[in-house]
Design a protein around this nucleic acid. Structure first.
Lengths: 221, 221
DNA sequence: TTTTGCCTTACGGTTTCCCGTAAAAATACC
DNA sequence: GGTATTTTTACGGGAAACCGTAAGGCAAAA
C-alpha cells in the first residue's frame, strides 16, 4: 500500500474520515492540509527531502476565509502539484456531480480517480485507492454506464460564448456588436439565431431559459 | 454526556467522522442511519423500548436513490421525530449556508443547534454538542454577527414556480393556463410579467436568461 | 478561372415578450 | 355596510426574438 499520502480538504470532518479510511487500508500516517497552498508546500517539501508523496487526495472546492491563498481550488492545486511532481497520482474526492466537469478532470488534468461524496463514499474511496495503487484508473460508479452515448453534442467555444453572454443579461440584438468588437466570427445576428436554434433543436428545448438552466446544471457555463 | 445519540446522514464519510467526534466526547455507541425513514423508525423503537434518544444529529439534504422514502429531507425528519418525541434535542449538521434557511430551522422547527459543514466543523460540532447537553441553544459562528441585512429579497413560492417553469422550457404565454389548472393564484399573464419584472429590477437583471442563471447558482431552482 | 458546396449575412413576416395604463376584483379598515 | 387600499386582470402599442428564404462571401476542387 501507499506510504506517503497527502489529503487536501478544507472540511475538518471530511478530512478526519478520509484519514480513518486510509488508516484502515494500512497507511500509517496520512498527512493532511486544510488549504491548497499548504498542500503544495508539503508536496514540494516532500520532493526536496527525498520522500515524495505517492498519492494526493483532494477536494475541488475550498472555501475562502481570512487567509488569502494563491491556489483557490482543487484543479489549480492538481495542476501545480503535477508541475512540481509529474508522476504524482491524484484522487479527487468531491461533491461535484456534473458529468462534464468530472470528465474534464480526467481529460484535462489526467487524474487517476474520482469519488463523489455520496451514500457509500467511504467504501468507494477504499476501492478507488486500491485500484490506483495497482496503477489503474478509477471511474466513479455513477458515471460508468452513461459511457457518453447521450450528450454527444459538443458545445463549441462560440456556443459557450453566446450562452454566457445571454446568461449575463446581454440582449441578443446587442451581441453582434460585441462579437464584432472582439473579432469573433461569425458575428451576425442571423448566425447567432441559427446557432441557438440548432442547439435547442438538438436537445428539444424551446426556450433560451431552458438552455441556460441546462448549461448551468452541466457545468458548461 | 449524552448516552443515546442518533445520527441521520446519508454520506458514509461524514457519518464516520460524526461518530468519531461523538466517541471523543464519551458517547460510547452512537447509532446511525443513512435514510430518514430508518432514523424515524429507530426513534420510535427507542421510545417503545424505554430507551429514547436524547439527541438527533441530522443532515438536511438526503439524496434519492433506488429506495423510495417517505421522509425526503432533514426538515421532514425533524418534524416527524418531534411529533413522536417532543422533547428530543436536535442538532443540524449540513452544508446549507443561506442565512434565511438556517434561521427558519430555529424559528419553524425549534432546533437546538446548527453546525455548518466547513473548515473547523468537527471542533464546532463538539462545542455544539456540549452546549446542547447543557440545555443551551447553539448558534452557528458564521451567523452570529450578520444581522441579516444583505440578501433580503425572499423568493416566494410563486416566484420559484414560474422561474422553474421557464427553465423547463414553458413559454411565458402558456404559463397562465398551467397556473389556472393547478389553481395557483395569481395566474394571469400580466401578474406573471409584473412579478418577473420586479425581480429583475431588484437584482438589476435585464433578461430572463440572467435570472435563471442566478437562481441556478444560488440553488434556488 | 470557373464551379461547387458550405458558411455567413441580410431581410421580412410572424410570434412572443415587454411595459405602461386602466379597469376589475379582492382584501382590509372604519 | 361602505369606503379605502392593495392585488389581480385586461388590453394595446412597441420592441425583441423567432423563423424561413434568399443573397453574398469564401475556400477547395475541377
Amino acid at each position: 500500500m501507499f506510504e506517503n499520502v497527502l489529503i487536501a480538504e478544507d472540511h475538518e470532518s471530511t478530512s478526519i474520515s478520509v484519514r480513518k479510511t486510509l488508516e484502515d487500508l494500512g497507511v500509517t500516517t496520512p498527512q493532511y492540509a486544510y488549504y491548497c497552498d499548504d498542500a503544495l508546500t508539503r508536496i514540494r517539501n516532500g520532493i526536496r527531502e527525498g520522500q515524495p508523496y505517492e498519492l494526493l487526495i483532494t477536494d475541488l472546492f475550498f472555501e475562502e476565509d481570512d487567509r488569502p491563498q494563491q491556489l483557490t481550488d482543487g484543479a489549480a492545486l492538481i495542476a501545480a502539484a503535477r508541475q512540481a511532481q509529474p508522476g504524482l497520482k491524484v484522487l479527487v474526492f468531491s461533491a461535484e456531480h456534473r458529468a462534464a466537469v468530472i470528465e474534464g478532470l480526467y481529460s484535462d488534468l489526467g487524474i487517476n480517480g474520482y469519488v463523489r461524496k455520496a451514500r457509500r463514499d467511504a467504501q468507494e474511496l477504499k476501492s478507488a485507492i486500491e485500484a490506483i495503487h495497482k496503477n489503474k484508473i478509477h471511474y466513479p460508479v455513477h458515471l460508468r454506464q452513461t459511457g457518453g452515448q447521450k450528450n454527444t453534442y459538443e458545445f463549441s467555444e462560440f456556443d459557450i460564448t453566446i450562452i454566457t453572454l445571454l446568461s449575463n443579461g446581454m440582449h441578443q440584438k446587442d451581441i453582434p456588436a460585441y462579437l464584432a468588437k472582439k473579432e469573433i466570427r461569425p458575428s451576425s445576428l442571423s448566425s447567432l439565431e441559427k446557432r441557438l436554434n440548432l442547439i435547442k433543436e438538438t436537445f428539444e428545448f424551446s426556450k433560451n431559459e431552458q438552455l441556460v438552466a441546462f448549461c448551468k446544471d452541466m457545468g458548461i457555463i
